[in-house]
């Protein structure tokens, strides 16, 4: 399962690689990283049909996570990727907006990796 993580904090890459160490080693999951919304779109255009799941931060300079979500849903990638939004502010505004734009899930920072793992496993099984 290919997962694209979008966040402007570069250390997120190291964190994910350690957290999913086993899964990566066993080949269950592979990760790609983009550090802005624009970079994420570039990646999706360059690697169509690869990413099954996109994990995106909302609060990023330039193109925000919500804008990215809108772009992805409008682009009609095939197959349509699952998009999970992550934000430090779990306010209703962001939450509602994310779902109205077609987000599949909504997570808050700091990330609960055990919960995330559970969700990823469920998606992987489906």
């Amino acid at each position: 399962m290919k997962i694209l993580v979008v966040d402007d904090e570069r250390d997120i890459q190291m964190l994910f690689e350690q957290r999913f160490r086993k899964e990566i080693r066993q080949g269950d999951m592979s990760f790609a990283f983009a550090f802005s919304g624009e970079e994420a779109l570039q990646y999706l255009d360059a690697h169509p049909q690869e990413a099954v799941l996109i994990l995106s931060d909302i609060n990023m300079p330039g193109m925000s996570g919500l804008e990215l979500l809108g772009e992805i849903k409008e682009h009609h990638y095939v197959p349509p990727p699952i998009v999970m939004m992550i934000t430090a502010y779990s306010d209703d505004d962001n939450y509602n907006k994310a779902f109205s734009l077609g987000a599949d899930d909504f997570l808050t920072k700091p990330l609960d990796f055990n919960l995330l793992k559970e969700k990823l496993k469920q998606i992987g099984h489906v």
Binding site: E9, Q18, R19, A88, K109, P110, L111, F113
Partner: peptide, 12 residues
């Protein structure tokens, strides 16, 4: 943000 990293990195 940095506090999140502190939490996450000590956890991992």
């Amino acid at each position: 943000n940095p506090l999140n990293f502190v939490t996450n990195f000590s956890d991992v």
